[in-house]
Design a protein around this nucleic acid. Structure first.
Lengths: 211, 211
DNA sequence: TCGTTAATTCTAACATCGTTAGAATTCTAA
DNA sequence: TTAGAATTCTAACGATGTTAGAATTAACGA
């Protein structure tokens, strides 16, 4: 019993140290970007020696994954907040999708992080299946208001999930173009194109139901 | 005169050596992926010492850029070939867009390369504005059959350019999801979603003109 | 309180990376 | 053949992620 108590305390302290390290990582990351967030600078910011981090994490990318998790949580909050006072399902869909888009438009470093950890070579199990599942769940959670609004608008569960994928994909692609200044090649702003896409999705959705 | 001759010859030889290096880079890249394509392994494959490459290129990423250029050329050929025997504009649009998508679905390493060089931090002028413009031109060239078909279907030049951006963005986003196995989260295949998107684009395009 | 054991952190090093300086070599041209 | 330019090499620098093993700190039973 006392043993269990102590063990729980130990685990909690260990978790605190993990968070301390991730906080340091975020500080470096926000100040210097992904390139500047080396293991060594993260360790320095956390008051650790580089090697010490390996007691708490398996690799640098494991720290990044934890950081991405907090980023996705922040994204989820942003999306939730965006639809708080919105009742009409079409408005909710639009607000959620555009909040998702804007989050990454306004936080390009978070976009970098996402692209980095979603890159090829970083196989699904590159972080361990468990952490990867948590990551996926956080992503889905942030996107789910879109699916919910779509279902209220008459979409089936399957259609709603496909819409989530479409919104994510379109946003990610446009952000990729915008992020390197290449959106200008097409004579438009990413924001405008995203709005067009969302309106189009809403239109075809509302056209189906009341027909 | 003789001087010019010789100077031209010298430039040609220099260009051949550049190509030799890029060929070596492609060999390593295809065999080992982006991570394995280090400056040193490229140099070894080309029969050079690492430092020697700096006489022909400014940086490792300059070699990558040259490699991406050949990749985009190959992409352009693939798209062109896909619409060769197709006459109906709707079919041409579909064939071109899906060929674009499939090229990267079937050549994930080329996708990696594109994502890498289009990443944040890699500013538009990270390679020098000149090389970046050439890259952009190659990308637009590969995508332009889509715009051409759209215009035949009644789209304005501006609308056609926006459609290019939309197709690129949607494909890139879906490929990103598919590339890390995350497309399954949404209960669909990237190929299906891309086909849906393209059909939808064709439908709204053909619905406008003959209306 | 002491001593033992486990948990945590450090020192030191390894291999690899991209890149640079400068010497050595090879080619070109008079 | 020789002066000069073009090309490649040797050697090193600083930085990276990671590991092995010693040193330290904390926890706990006697």
């Amino acid at each position: 019993m006392s043993n269990e108590r102590k063990a729980g305390r130990r685990r909690a302290v260990s978790e605190l140290k993990r968070e301390l390290i991730v906080d340091a990582a975020r500080k470096v990351f926000e100040a210097e970007g992904l390139d500047g967030a080396s293991l060594r600078s993260i360790a320095a910011a956390a008051g650790y020696t580089p090697a010490a981090l390996y007691f708490h994490f398996d690799s640098k990318e494991a720290i990044y994954a934890e950081l991405l998790l907090t980023s996705l949580a922040s994204l989820g909050q942003t999306v939730s907040r965006a639809i708080l006072r919105t009742k009409q399902p079409a408005d909710r869909l639009r607000a959620a999708a555009m909040a998702f888009f804007r989050f990454y438009a306004e936080n390009p470093r978070d976009l970098d992080l996402g692209f980095y950890l979603f890159r090829g070579g970083m196989k699904p199990h590159g972080l361990g299946k468990k952490r990867d599942d948590v990551l996926n769940a956080a992503l889905i959670a942030a996107l789910s208001p879109i699916a919910e609004a779509a279902q209220v608008l008459g979409a089936t569960r399957e259609q709603a999930r496909l819409l989530m994928a479409d919104v994510f994909a379109h946003a990610a692609g446009l952000l990729l173009l915008a992020h390197t200044g290449r959106i200008r090649l097409f004579g438009a702003s990413a924001q405008n194109l995203m709005e067009r896409f969302v309106e189009h999705a809403i239109a075809t959705l509302t056209a189906k139901k009341p027909a």
